[in-house]
């Protein structure tokens, strides 16, 4: 089995501030890895660095064995950013945005093929937005826009999906729908890296969890159980009768596991 993503000692600094501090992360083909952590812990930066979208200030990262600058098979990657960028006000329909997910498979100067159209229709169907295909994306709700982004990645029929908080602002029904979609992908051997705050219905699919805290990897291994998520650094619940969550960078459930 080969590796999809392979980062060694990855560092990112923006304006001299260290955002990622020496991350080692290998994702094999077919794995489903969740990236967890508090707001600002560097999750988005990590997945963007994995893709080579965010340049590293130290260390190295490989996509299917090649550094991003020399990687050519971009159709193998489907990236779902944290939010939809609507552009400067020029309208674009749901179908146009989803169809742009085919770009890595299209040859310059060629017309849209029937394979392109079929993949776009299937992706729209998968996220339940076929009925809105002709509407401008800006007229959709935040949760629906999230589904547009997922459909765009699906349309490219990639081998590996990198999803940045695909469940943020998405209702329970849509989360289950996303879980079903992901299950289908996983069964077909696709690789998935997803950033999340709450795993919710995605939890049973996750084969591995990586926890970030202030730009450091503090856990890499079994996913947290539902009870365990309460101890995640990202979990902002305030329990008035309990002492404030410890400032320890390592969640308690990790410690519990390592002792076992």
């Amino acid at each position: 089995m080969s590796t999809a993503f392979d980062m060694t000692a990855g560092q990112v600094a923006i304006d001299g501030r260290k955002i990622l501090r020496g991350i080692d992360l290998t994702v094999d083909e077919g794995e489903v890895v969740a990236v967890l952590g508090a707001n600002g812990s560097g999750k988005s930066t990590l997945v963007r660095a994995l893709l080579g979208v965010q340049p590293l200030s130290g260390g190295a990262t490989l996509l299917y064995g090649r550094p991003p600058a020399r990687f050519r098979e971009w159709w193998r990657i489907g990236y779902v950013p944290q939010r939809l960028s609507v552009g400067g006000g020029v309208p674009a329909t749901v179908r146009e945005v989803v169809a742009s997910g085919r770009i890595a498979r299209q040859r310059r100067g060629r017309f849209t093929s029937s394979a392109d159209r079929q993949a776009v229709a299937a992706a729209l169907e998968e996220v339940g937005l076929s009925g809105r295909a002709g509407d401008p994306v800006s007229s959709l709700s935040g949760g629906q826009q999230q589904r547009v982004l997922i459909a765009r990645a699906l349309a490219g029929e990639p081998d590996a999906f990198v999803l940045d908080e695909p469940t943020a602002g998405v209702d329970a029904g849509s989360q289950r729908m996303l879980a079903d979609t992901l299950r289908g992908l996983v069964e077909r051997g696709r690789t998935v890296v997803l950033v999340a705050h709450e795993l919710g219905p995605l939890e049973p699919l996750i084969s591995r969890a990586v926890v970030l805290n202030q730009g450091c990897k503090v856990h890499d291994g079994a996913p947290p159980t539902a009870v365990g998520t309460h101890a995640l650094p990202g979990h902002d619940h305030v329990h008035p009768h309990e002492p404030a969550p410890a400032e320890s960078p390592v969640p308690s459930w990790v410690l519990a596991q390592e002792k076992a």
């Binding site: 963007r48 893709l51 979208v53 990657i77 990236y79 674009a92 742009s100 770009i103 299209q106 990198v162």
Partner: peptide
């Protein structure tokens, strides 16, 4: 045009598509 559409819509996605 097709590539410019992706670029102008979201530069990061354009980069992650290998454009």
């Amino acid at each position: 045009g097709r590539e410019l559409f992706v670029l102008c819509q979201d530069e990061e996605v354009a980069r992650a598509s290998g454009l």
